[in-house]
């Protein structure tokens, strides 16, 4: 059988999401962002919400998220995405609004905006990528960096006496009345990806149903910042990140 006979639309079993464009991604090999972007693009398309969706990108590695998913975007100042999304949703109630934020953005500089947006129960989705490090600026300590984990600003490992403890901000957010869903997911295996996509869709549906804020944390890797290969990163994440940031729903209101 010739290749041309095989490569036909009816034989296609998998493809790039329609809303992902062909711009070369700036993410490092092994980075979790690419997979999470893909899931968001698929969910928006599956829901038929392309024309109603506005994304808010953060400051951090995902600052250029707007270059990859073909929807309207607003690029927010560092940590301020939940405030930006608050107004977008309140002034455009029929639109689907989400923020995409890293750990520094959401759990350090933007802690106030995050807590208050969730506490108000804004009908938005917060996608939170927690790789326990500042990737964009070159691997500095994050609020979620594990105890003993090295970074360029804690080269001998996070020292509790000096830096305090890693912040389990999702646990904190799950306590808030305004949150309808707070969950931890990952994307290092095919099974995890499938589960994460289902969860993400539920989060977006919650926002359109007016149920309150949905927070989807992705426990993620940063091969460059962690100074490991992608494969080592996944193993390290499973061995060290998952015990401290256990996967699963912290809150899921039906």
């Amino acid at each position: 059988m010739e290749l041309t006979e095989i490569i036909k639309p009816e034989n296609q079993v998998y493809g790039k999401p329609r809303l992902m464009n062909d711009n070369p991604m700036h993410y490092c090999p092994g980075c979790s962002h690419g997979v999470i972007h893909k899931l968001i693009a698929e969910v928006i398309d599956d829901m038929g919400m392309e024309e109603q969706t506005i994304g808010v990108s953060p400051v951090g590695c995902a600052v250029f998220a707007y270059n990859y998913i073909d929807i309207d975007w607003v690029e927010a100042a560092h940590g301020r995405a939940p405030a930006v999304a608050t107004a977008l949703k309140r002034l455009n109630r029929e639109k689907m609004i989400f923020t995409y934020q890293g750990d520094g953005d959401l759990a350090a500089i933007g802690t106030a905006e995050t807590i208050h947006a969730v506490n108000r129960g804004e009908n938005i989705v917060i996608v939170f990528v927690n790789n326990a490090i500042y990737g964009m600026t070159g691997g500095q300590m994050a609020p979620t960096t594990l105890v003993g984990m090295p970074s360029s600003t804690c080269p001998y490992g996070r020292d509790v006496a000096l830096n305090g403890y890693p912040l389990k901000i999702a646990n904190l957010l799950a306590q808030l009345e305004g949150a309808c869903m707070v969950t931890r997911q990952s994307v290092q295996t095919a099974a995890a990806v499938r589960k994460a996509k289902k969860t993400l869709r539920k989060a977006f549906e919650n926002s359109m149903a007016g149920k309150g804020t949905s927070v989807v944390e992705f426990v993620s890797t940063c091969s460059s910042g962690w100074k490991m290969t992608p494969d080592q990163s996944n193993k390290w994440m499973e061995a060290h990140m998952f015990p401290f940031y256990p996967l699963g729903d912290l809150k899921n209101t039906e």
Partner: peptide, 17 residues
């Protein structure tokens, strides 16, 4: 808003739309 910082960023989001 919870702060002046949040308020001006809400303005940014609203103005963007």
């Amino acid at each position: 808003a919870e702060s002046e910082v949040a308020a001006i960023n809400m303005v940014y989001g609203g103005a963007a739309s």
